[in-house]
Every structure is written in C-alpha cells, then in structure tokens.
Design a protein around this nucleic acid. Structure first.
Lengths: 380, 380
DNA sequence: CAGAAGAATGTGTGCGGACACACAAGAATT
DNA sequence: AATTCTTGTGTGTCCGCACACATTCTTCTG
C-alpha cells in the first residue's frame, strides 16, 4: 500500500527538484470494480450463472463453474455493497439481530455498550436491519438462564451476547450452534463456545497498565490499595479476576507486592461503599493510591474526597457517566477506558458484515484499544 | 434515546419480578424510512417534484414546495444512501477529492494521516470516489505555494488540506471559496479560512497532558526538559508552540516553572539529535524527565538509552513507527497519540458526507480523542 | 383566437444485484 | 413415440434514487 508513496518520499531531498517530484506524486487510486454482468461476459456465461456461483445456489455445470471462478479470482470481484443492500430490500427479508446483555442504569457500563449498538443501528439504518434487545439481571443467574432459554426460541439471524454467566452462555451457544445461528460476544469470552468474534479489551494489559500508572503516580514508599467488588454468592467476574492478578503480578515483579492491600467494597451501594473506604483509609494511613478494578470507581473517589483525605491517587475503569463526572471534578485521577460503546458498535458492524458477506474479515478476538483518560483528555 | 431503556432498568430491583421485566424489555427499533415515492403520494405530487425539492433544482411552484417540505419535515426523510450511490453511478460522475499534505517517510506523522485516508477510500470504495494526492515539502514554503497554485487549477469536488504554511493555505482557501469548492483541514486550523471541518486534537490539552504525566512520573525535586525542534529560517509550528506554552503553563500554575528547561534539537537528523541530547544530559544531571513536543521522540529516547542514562522518563507525541518501536523496546515511556490516521479517515468521511448530503452533521472543529500509550496498551 | 413560449409537473430509464421464472436440451418414465 | 422429469441456462422484474425527457397547463403575442 505504501509502495508508491514511500518511493517518492525518499527521493525528495534536494531543494530544487521538488517540482519534478510533484508531477509524479499526483497518483490516482483506481479501484475499478467489475459488475456481475461484466464478469458474466468475461466468463462467457449469463449474469444468472455468475449469481448462482456467487451464492452457491447450485445448478451450474462444472465447466461454467470453472470458467466463472477463474474470472472471479482474476478480477478479485466484490459485491457492490449498495446494490446488494438495495436488492435485498426487494426480498422483504430483514436481518434480525438479537442483543442480550445485562441491563444497567443510564450511563453505566452496559448502557454504554447499548449506546454503541444504537449508534451502529443509526449508522447502518439503510440496511434492512432490526435489533431486538433482551435484557437480564447480571446479578441473578436465574434471570440470565430464563432469558437465554427464551432467545433459543426466537427467530433471528444473529445474536450478540454480553458474557456474564459462564454456564448459561455455554448452553445458549450450544443451542445456537445447533441451529446454525452465528453469535458474537461483547465484554468477554467464554470457553467451549464458537463465537464469530469477541469484542473486548486485553484484561491482562488492563491490570498491568493500572499497576504501571499507580506505580508511577504514587511515591515509592507508599502503600497501594486494590479494590474489588464485594459479592455474595457469586464469585469475582472473570475480567476482574484477570485484572487483579495482572495488577499484583506487576508489583511482584518489582518486589513491591507487600505494598499492595486488597480490599472489598459494596459496589452496588453508594453510601455503604463510602463508609467502607473511609474506615479503610483511617486504618491504613500509608495508602496513597487506590486502584479500582471495576467500573464504579466514582463511588470511591467521591467518598475519598468528601472524607477529606488528601494526596490520594484514585484510578479505575471505563468512562461511565459517574466516572467522567469525577474526573472532571478532580476527585478521580484517571480511568482506563475499554470503550464499551465501541465494543457494541463493532459487534453490530461485524454481525452485519458476517450476514452480508458470510465472513468475519478479521480474527476471532477483536481486542479493543485501551485508553487512559485524565482530566486533560476527557471528552466532554 | 435512553428513554425506554432507563425506565425499564430502574424498575428491576426486586428479585422475583425480573420475568415481567423481560416481557417489556423486548422492544423493537423501527426506523421506518419512507421512499421518495411515498413522500410524493403524501404531498399529493409526483416523485419528480419531490426530487426537485430535495435537490434544489427549481421549477417547483410555491404551493408544491410548501406541501413537500411539510411532509419531508414531518416524516424526517433521509435519502437511502445505497440507492443514492447506485443511481449516482448512472450519471458517470465521480467525486474527485484532492488531498494535499506534506510527504513524509513511511510510518511517520503525515504518512499515518495518509494511511487513514487510504483506509477510508477502501471502506467507501463502493461510492464513486476518487482521491488524488498532491504532496509538498513541509520545510519548503515555495514547494507549498507552487503546489497550492496547481491545485487551484485542478478540477475537483473537494480538497483536504494538511495545514502547515499559514499564508499559502489562506491563499488557496480564498481561491477555493471563490470557486465554491469545499475544503477540510487535517492536523490544524488556519485563521481567516472557512473549512467545512477541521480534524485535529486540542493542542492545549495535549501540552497540559504531557506536563501532567511528566509531573506524575518524575520525582518532585528533579528537573524536566522540554524538547523542541531546531529550525532554521522557519519558526516553530503553531501546534508545537501551543503545546509548549500549555506545558509551561501547567508548571507555572504549580510554581515549578524553574524546574523546566527548554532545549532545541535537530529533529531531522538522528545522529546529530543523539549527540545533542547526550551533551545536554551530561550538563544537566538533575534532568529526570524529557518531554518532546513533536512526533520524533524516538530520536531522543533511543539516544538516551544508548548513552547509558538511567531513570529518565521520556514522553512524546504520536504513534509513529519509530515511537511505537521505542515504546515496545522500553526506551520511550509513553506517547500522547493524536490519531493522525483517524484524522485522515474522518476527513474523507466528512468530505463524502458533505458531498452526498450537502452538510457537515457536526460542528466545524472536530476534536480528535487524545490517547496516552504506554507499553502495556500499545497496539502491536 | 391560434400558436408560440415558458413554467410546472409527471413519466421513463437504468444504476448493480437478488431472485423468480421461463425455457431448452437431454434423460427417464409411461 | 409421447410424456414427464431433471438439469443447466438466460431473461425479466424490482429495490430507491438521479436525471433526462415527455407532457400538461398557463400566459403572452401577433
């Protein structure tokens, strides 16, 4: 791709010759795409036959097949996306995508994923596309199970799944596999499943980055607290567990593991969380950094500021509304953003791509970029 | 947009009722788009009249105009992008976008912008779109002037301009304004011009963020060097100047300005740059942080490591190939990424959008997100 | 008042692809 | 030998839009 460009660029050192350079630098992109009819002419058959080959509809003689495939390969044919979409309308069919994710309040993690999905729907609204949301309770495996059972009975073209409960997800995927319905993951992966793609951030990198930043921003002789959600009944989510392990691992490598204190707080209760962190900081005055491995750091940073503790660096995950507010106000120092909205958007995009072309053009694991957000680069 | 979603979510607190919730949560998006023909029927006119109204082709009576506009507004009509693109093909016209940016070596700043543009071309290849590159020498105002004069004579639908030389850009824009050709900026803005949109990062935020990170990562009693390119004849580019001022401002606010040392290096000569920084560090042993305000930090970080200086934090701008390599190898600690590729991509996208719909759907200034990249979140 | 000129409006065609359907030629059945 | 059936193939229609061209209605002129 860079061939011509770099060749020209390397030639321009002398001052006087730039004009000659310009003549050559004006180069044109030509993505001459052939149509089905042109392919047909080249292969010596009719458009219908080419269509049959392209869609594997059968009823094509071996010689015709060979002739068409030869031309197709030679000309690297691609559907014209627009014509395809237009013609598809005629059929009256609609791509029905079912999205099943936990519900959450406006501006919280799963709602950001949903925003991305909605955005994708708006962007790709000109395709015959329908999205059907089915929410469940991320803290209640029964809700998840019954929801997933419902989905298996639904008539749809593809499913986007927010990975939470492992066993329930595996069951759903098994059912979908049997029916040949493609599915995609957002936020994570689950073993023994075959998603067409999974959109998530590298959790090991996330944990390590959190550690690196804390290490940099907190004095060498201070202690650092790593905060987890208190859970009753259920265990730590897979993502959080990986982040925690990776976080601790960083400090182990630096032989500073003794400075790290683990602490669990009530992530679903603002008041309780505040009281807990206050008490903790009183008991541990050497703690000068608080690393929250989940998306509700704002519950902590707000309380830390209110309680009057100074010079404590607080970091967390994801640009939820609460976190963004605290960053803006200064109580939260930074967050590591996994782009939940982008995950949602890309999942829809990939789904549509798969439905239209029958392929995912990239690898199964779609790692999202991990951003670090300070007050200075927060998007308002 | 969140209306239904948040209403439902807030209702689900009790454990037992989630199933009821599910029934309601299955809600369907319906973006029922009317066609021109349907609009015509509703307005009591023919499709041709609606078409004339939509394209401002004139020859429409006042009453017909009013009737159509009323229906259009009421139904919030939008072209079907696909049909539009398909039908446009028939006309044989092609959108010809001229891109004029400085040339640079593969993987350097302007080449990243170009990659983004190429990517956009690939993505939007199914539109009748042609891109014509015209490169110039960013260190030679004559090259720029003569290139721009050439562009004024070219026949094109829109121009994307990499802002470098102020006066030359103003002249070009004046000419384009006269001909009614829309133009877009990448990397910066220029006063007294009327671009449809400018794609760039907030440079004040960039400088401040650089300062914030340096401040955090370098001990309080150490000195910090801020590195500028040595220029002969030309002055510091606008972007660099803003970053520098913003950087210094941060430390002034903290009354630590005395710890900041400015230093100019040969940004276009790897060997010279290395010798200069080595000498500088020998003379200034208290310097423990190096902030490079331009995109060639890799020239510095490589030399710092080779010369054997330890414990010095180096930060710079943009994920160029050189910088990415140094981050990976560990000599460069972090970079602030302005997403040049995204700037290029979005510029093409916005241009196409303008050409198709006659509007830029957002504000003139398109601020790009600013990312911070460490080894941990570097995309390979 | 016929006829030309002009303004407003309606109709027709084709972009590239998806699919239904018509049709031809040979094989299998009655 | 006449018929159904199979298999391969080409043709026609339509999706929604852009634009050329045909048509109608109005007004003005000799």
């Amino acid at each position: 791709m860079y061939g011509i460009f770099s060749k020209i660029a390397s030639r321009v050192c002398s001052d006087t010759k730039y004009f000659v350079f310009l003549q050559e630098a004006i180069y044109r992109h030509m993505a001459q795409q052939l149509t089905i009819k042109q392919i047909a002419t080249l292969a010596g058959v009719s458009a219908g036959t080419v269509d049959r080959v392209l869609h594997n509809r059968g009823k094509v003689s071996e010689e015709a097949l060979a002739a068409v495939q030869a031309v197709l390969k030679d000309q690297s044919y691609r559907y014209n996306l627009h014509s395809s979409a237009i013609a598809f309308k005629k059929t009256g069919k609609v791509w029905n995508i079912v999205v099943t994710i936990p519900f959450s309040k406006k501006g919280e993690y799963w709602d950001l994923i949903k925003s991305g999905i909605d955005q994708a729907l708006a962007e790709y609204g000109d395709f015959s596309l329908k999205i059907e949301y089915v929410f469940f309770d991320q803290f209640n495996s029964n809700s998840c199970r019954e929801t997933f059972e419902k989905i298996e009975k639904m008539d749809c073209s593809a499913v986007i799944i927010g990975t939470t409960f492992v066993e329930e997800t595996q069951n759903l995927c098994k059912g979908l596999d049997k029916k040949g319905i493609p599915y995609f993951f957002v936020d994570g992966k689950v073993t023994d499943t075959k998603p067409k793609a999974a959109f998530m951030a590298n959790q090991t990198a996330c944990g390590r980055l959190l550690a690196r930043l804390m290490d940099g921003f907190v004095a060498d002789d201070a202690e650092i607290a790593v905060l987890l959600p208190k859970r009753i009944g259920t265990q730590l989510s897979n993502n959080s567990a990986i982040r925690l392990a990776s976080f601790r691992n960083y400090f182990k490598e630096k032989s500073r593991d003794s400075a790290v204190k683990e602490f669990s707080f009530s992530a679903d209760n603002e008041k309780k969380a505040g009281e807990e962190i206050s008490a903790f900081l009183k008991e541990n005055p050497a703690v000068k950094g608080i690393a929250v491995v989940i998306s509700t750091a704002y519950l902590i940073s707000g309380a830390v500021e209110k309680s009057g503790f100074k010079g404590i660096c607080v970091g967390g995950f994801d640009a939820t509304e609460g976190n963004s507010r605290c960053i803006r106000e200064g109580s939260l120092d930074f967050i590591i953003n996994q782009h939940p909205d982008k995950q949602g958007f890309n999942a829809v995009e990939a789904t549509l791509h798969y439905l239209l072309y029958g392929t995912t053009d990239s690898s199964t694991d779609e790692l999202m970029p991990i951003d670090i957000v300070f007050k200075e680069n927060l998007i308002p």
